[in-house]
Design a protein around this nucleic acid. Sequence first.
RNA 1: GCCGAUGUAGCUCAGUAGGUAGAGCGCGUCCUUGGUAAGGACGAGGUCACCGGUUCGAGUCCGGUCAUCGGCUCCA
Length: 636
Amino acid sequence: MDQVTVTLPDGSTRQMPMGTPVREVAASISPRLAAAALAAAVGDRVVDLTHPLEEDASVRIITKDGPEALELYRHSTAHLLAAAVTSLFPEAQCGIGPPTEDGFFYDFVVDRPFVPEDLEAIEAKMRELASLDLAYERKMMSKAEAKRYFADRGEPLKVQLIEEKGGPIVSCYTIDGVFMDFCTGPHVPSSGVLKAFRVLTSSNAYWKGDAKNQPMQRIYGTAFFTNKALEEHLTRLEEAKKRDHRKLGRELGLFTFHKWAPGATFWLAHGTTLWNLLAEYMRAMLFPEGYVEIRTPLVFNKQLWETSGHWEHYREHMFLVESEGEPYGLKAMNCPGHMLVFASEVRSYRDLPIRYYDQSVLHRNEASGVLAGLTRARQFCQDDAHCFVTREQIGDEVERLLRLVQRVYADFRLDFSVELSTRPETFLGDTKTWDQAEHQLEQALEASGQAYVVAEGQGNFYGPKIDFHVIDAIGRNWQCATIQLDYQLPERFQLKYIGTDNAEHRPVVIHRAIFGSFERFIALLIEHYAGAFPLWLAPVQTIIVPIADRHGDYAETVATRLREAGLRVEVDARQEKMGYKIREAQLRKIPYMLVTGDREAADNAVAVRHRTDGDQGACAVDAFIASALAEVRRRS
RNA sequence: GCCGAUGUAGCUCAGUAGGUAGAGCGCGUCCUUGGUAAGGACGAGGUCACCGGUUCGAGUCCGGUCAUCGGCUCCA
């Protein structure tokens, strides 16, 4: 019989009879590996353990530690879910069921939405099927055979998928006869390896994600190799719930909402303090970089939006109003207004770059179903700026911006990743200009030492962009900063500057924001810090806790001194025991509690309690002020 | 916008089989002047989201509207 040569990751080789399933490779290495094997990588293909070796190849056995393992495991768990659903709901039609970043989902057409009891029953059924250790087997069928099979099973969506995606021979997987799915695989060898999974939620989805198609019910679940990892993930979900900015925002008195202004924030005193701190911070960062702050109208005549192109492309997201028969729109972005400011004077190349910063209120008429606290609002403010530059200045300007973004996120102790998005399939302008711009962005990224990935074809139709994804304390991603080149808007507004050659030239506009929006960034900060803001951002930095009524005057004296030093202070003079006041201050996550009693009043001191480090003992008032101010400056 | 769920006191929630509402926290008054996460007593507070219907009678059943939540789609 013909032999094939198998090369293992350590470089050693083995001869196996042609057609040997890769499972045997694992077995030939060790019984332990054979038992742990989930799949195998043959060359650069990930395959089932039953995959026959037909030619010389490098083989790597995939166990739970392999990079592809979790995705594959979750995919197999999604099949198990579908098997359970079709077993409990024979009329259910299956859609698709891929693994996701945190687990998996599977879409079904059913008569009625799933209720929590259904999900429990489905999970129980999955456990039952898992405990039976049913084999996952690949079946190759002709396209016609597969279509007939799924048509007979009452799975028209699968028939459609096979028609669209299948070759002459299609790959399907069974779970020991109880379930069959059209799927390229690979899968785990049997359901017994699926141990730590959980059905989480169900919700509506549409066939192929299009609301014009038929509605389906999506079931989300998650799966891990160990119960410990599963529990940790569920704990993380709980933690995310605890940090939810909507909950903390109410508890900490930062903001509120009212049904008469859906999607618009009422900033309460403490929230406004935070907002203003961020605004002051951003101005302090931008002014030395050559930005000037401007303020532009909120309501513009339709003609502006026609010129900018928003009337054509964005009207359904705009709040429209009318005055004396003339149509107006509330601005959804600042750029068109900034174009008018640029055009309001004759510009020379000597004036460039011009950098307009604007914290104006923006309104976007978002669909009611997508509103969510501060992260998805109808009214918000961006830390928005537009840099008007010559083509030659793009690289320098972007490089300056990259360094600025790095400094800002460092101040908030936020990690982030960077993505360069290049020319999409449909774009405006010429490819030469695009190539040049992309090259300049790349060079700027290289020069700034910033690691990044390229997202091919993900740029805006009007120019390439660099996006920043902030990673918060519990590992979630938030899209914040963006740097977008725009060749179109200057064109539409006929912007020009006079060059060294005394001729008119078109400037390029760079749209850029670092926070993104104040609303979303504050939501991020609340969840990142779990409401316990660092001293420099805490709306109330210190609370003074007099022990008894007779200490009230001294407490006020201390408070005045702290305020004069620039600290944000409250005095809790209520007739409550100090344990009560301290508990409340702890729950409000106030960084410093300063207890003032007889001893402190006598020594011109305060007894310092830190919200996380506890009782720090007595400290002279001046010494406390000095150390608190130092902490504010460190932003730690 | 679409699908589903939810909407009871400022907050978190009970409310059983339709018979005009309860708790804890918070709030107010009084007592207590207390040294590092809840002292005690009494009290006020609700058109049960809104509109309409069924019924002798609706927080409870039905329809509609609005908002919120979880998703879809979209996005700062």
